[in-house]
Design a protein around this nucleic acid. Structure first.
Lengths: 226, 226
DNA sequence: GCGGTTGATCACCGTTGGATAACGATCCGG
DNA sequence: CCGGATCGTTATCCAACGGTGATCAACCGC
């Protein structure tokens, strides 16, 4: 199993106890105490599932959930202390996969986590990544924009995927060479420049003024979110 | 636990023995023998900690460390064969989290790795650094002020990062030359003066009366004091 | 106040990085 | 075998970046 769980919960004692419980159940756990940080961790780490308290200082859990769902389909389980069902409904509407109401028995939580992960694997993760108006279906090898399909070539598609998997992260040309063309590839990194160019021509509204794939001069390229 | 360790060491026997030791201690290990490859692996793999020999063919360990620290806060432990402390000091200044001097007892190394990882989780290294009203997202190479994005150049951004990583710490011009431009850089330290000035022009409310980046006459600069 | 030192500011301009177009090799379906 | 598509390579153009030197202003010891 060995899935990586991100746990966002402001109550310290709950956080520590539950983290232990999850670790004993065989999960790798990254825990933090507020929404901002949760989003940061999520952006940095490769996470298989997110455990999200609704009540959080700063950005609350629902907001975090919405933010994650903007670009990722990682399973999310919400934790809610409230007895009323409003948060649950809103949470599920936002794309949460399950919820657990506090107080909970740790074994129950572990069971739910397992269940959601299993479900996710069963439905063979749709692997649809969204980035702005663009939708990428890695499995189907298709990318659409506002519903219309983009006629991307294989390398263009791979390049787009790599960029889209970590939106906002800047990739140097060398990283992209490794990730898209493979580590053994020997060749000028100017190839990346051209590849980006060709991708932009198909993806951007106005390729001369790219808004989706932006250039960071002296560093590299990045996708998304102004 | 199951952390992923990247191990960069050119001496083959040390590499193999230590890799085994680390694996027996429960870590996943990726090993390689030179700096270039180390950086490539780092770019490709999801790594939790880097073990870095100082003496390496090609790019040396200090350079690799600097390169990684340009955009990542992944914990780094330096291995140094030298008895003199210069490398250690430079390494720590460059942002290494610990160092171990060779020859070392493998158990000691494992203990240090565990300690640094634990520390890292405790201090929960943020991808986004805040300094006053300024937010810095190192991975995205992006800095905002009151939400509005700052149009910084690559060097300006790196300079800001270095200063922001240790707020209130005073940096001499020579330190900044090393940390931002690299220690091979030969050139007048007045360059730093100009760079600071250009950064201030974009960051300060009133660049003629800087409040964020202050000058310590006869010494250097520091960010966010008061 | 005076001279010396340190930092701020400005303008200059060579270099670099990135956009863009064009070329050629290779692959593939018909 | 031919025609189109794809992708690696190369040449050219332009803007922006950043290193340098000159000049000006602030500060310090005497």
């Amino acid at each position: 199993m060995d899935a990586h769980v991100l746990f966002v919960e402001d109550d310290r004692s709950i956080r520590e106890v539950t983290t232990l419980e999850l670790e004993q159940a065989g999960f790798r756990v990254t825990a933090c105490g507020d929404g901002h940080e949760g989003l940061n961790m999520f952006a940095r780490e490769q996470v298989d599932l997110v455990l999200l308290d609704v009540m959080l200082p700063g950005i609350d859990g629902l907001e975090v959930c919405r933010e994650i769902r903007r670009s990722h389909r990682t399973p999310i389980i919400m934790l809610t202390a409230r007895t009323d069902t409003v948060d649950v409904v809103v949470g599920l509407e936002l794309g949460a996969d399950d919820y657990v109401s506090k107080p909970f028995q740790p074994p129950e939580l572990v069971a739910r986590v397992r269940a959601v992960l299993r479900r996710g694997q069963a439905t063979e993760t749709p692997a649809v990544v969204r980035a702005g108006e663009i939708e990428i279906d890695e499995a189907a090898f298709r990318a659409t924009r506002d519903g219309r399909e983009l006629a991307l070539t294989a390398t263009e598609f791979r390049l787009l995927c790599v960029l889209a998997r970590r939106p906002r992260q800047v990739f140097t040309r060398e990283m992209l060479l490794d990730l898209v063309w493979g580590y053994e590839f020997l060749g000028d990194s100017r190839l990346v420049t051209v590849a980006i160019q060709r991708l932009r021509a198909k993806v951007e509204d106005d390729p001369t003024h790219p808004t989706l794939i932006t250039t960071v001069r002296g560093v590299g390229y990045r996708l998304g979110s102004a």
